[in-house]
């Protein structure tokens, strides 16, 4: 009998984990090496459209609700100090710095990341990727590069959209208690949003978008045989992407704090 089963399993798991990390890094390296021309413009644009189309309804609803609820919940704490006039800028800061980037990324991981994993996974197991390969075309460029570019570009767009809709939600909630014009509300709210807030959220969401795209593509592109592999790829794409987004969020907060 094996006398040390415990250590063996642990090291084996770690082995698999680091092997997976290593392969992901190689995959990212390949992405950058295949980035040059000729570009698959048509496919890139189609994928941008798909990213928007897939996540827009859910993002709209979520952001509107977040705007209303967050504002409503923040009011009592502020009114204790008689500081209700700070409400718009408090809400704006929370939304721009943290909520909009993170919630957009989580929704996109669920909707877009899983879709990329499933789509490429099914193309892998039905040999469509091999078919592109043997017809002397470049499936990596056509399938992976276009999707990752699309998520990297579209996530910031969706984030700003989400922030805007949340602010509308916030405004509607404030309107219940006091009579402010939309313009006055936005001026008040955006007064405390610095260029750093804007810039760091932009960079952060580009990184989120890249991660969601590349992780989904990695899982799908390397799906193993069988329809079961497609489901696994989709699932792994979501779980891994969410995990990575959280890690990146923590790192990003640290980095922006150095600059404040």
């Amino acid at each position: 009998m094996n006398s040390k089963p415990r250590t063996y399993i642990l090291s084996k798991k770690l082995d698999v984990f680091f092997g997976e990390v290593y392969n992901n890094v190689l995959f990212i390296g390949r992405f950058f090496s295949e980035l040059g021309p000729p570009y698959e413009w048509k496919e890139i644009i189609r994928q941008c459209y798909m990213v928007g189309y897939k996540s827009l309804p859910l993002i709209s609803v979520t952001s509107f609700v977040i705007g209303i609820v967050f504002t409503k919940q923040s009011r009592p704490s502020l009114s204790e100090f008689g500081a209700e006039s700070w409400l718009p800028s408090l809400v704006a800061i929370a939304i721009f710095r943290a909520l909009a980037p993170l919630v957009t990324a989580l929704i996109a991981a669920g909707k877009v990341g899983s879709n990329i994993g499933a789509e490429l996974g099914s193309m892998r197991v039905t040999e469509q990727i091999d078919a592109m390969e043997v017809s002397a075309t470049n499936p990596f460029k056509f399938l992976v590069v276009s999707r990752v570019l699309a998520t990297s570009f579209m996530l910031p767009v969706l984030m700003f959209y989400m922030a805007f809709i949340s602010m509308i939600g916030a405004y509607l909630n404030i309107l219940v208690n006091e009579d402010t014009s939309l313009v006055a509300f936005f001026v008040n709210a955006l007064e405390n949003i610095s260029f750093l807030d804007f810039f760091s959220s932009l960079i952060k969401t580009i990184v989120f978008g890249f991660s969601i795209g590349i992780i989904g593509a990695y899982q799908g592109y390397n799906a193993t045989q069988g329809t079961e592999g497609v489901g696994r790829a989709a699932n792994a794409a979501v779980v891994t992407a969410m995990f990575v987004v959280f890690i990146e969020e923590i790192v990003a907060v640290q980095i922006t704090n150095w600059f404040r």
């Binding site: 099914s122 193309m123 039905t126 040999e127 469509q128 091999d130 078919a131 592109m132 390969e133 043997v134 017809s135 002397a136 470049n138």
Partner: peptide, 19 residues
């Protein structure tokens, strides 16, 4: 490999058409 494959045709068992 890509240049080589210009000269090769491969018809897959399950056709592998792009869905």
């Amino acid at each position: 490999l890509r240049n080589f494959r210009l000269k090769i045709g491969f018809s897959f068992q399950n056709s592998a058409l792009y869905d």
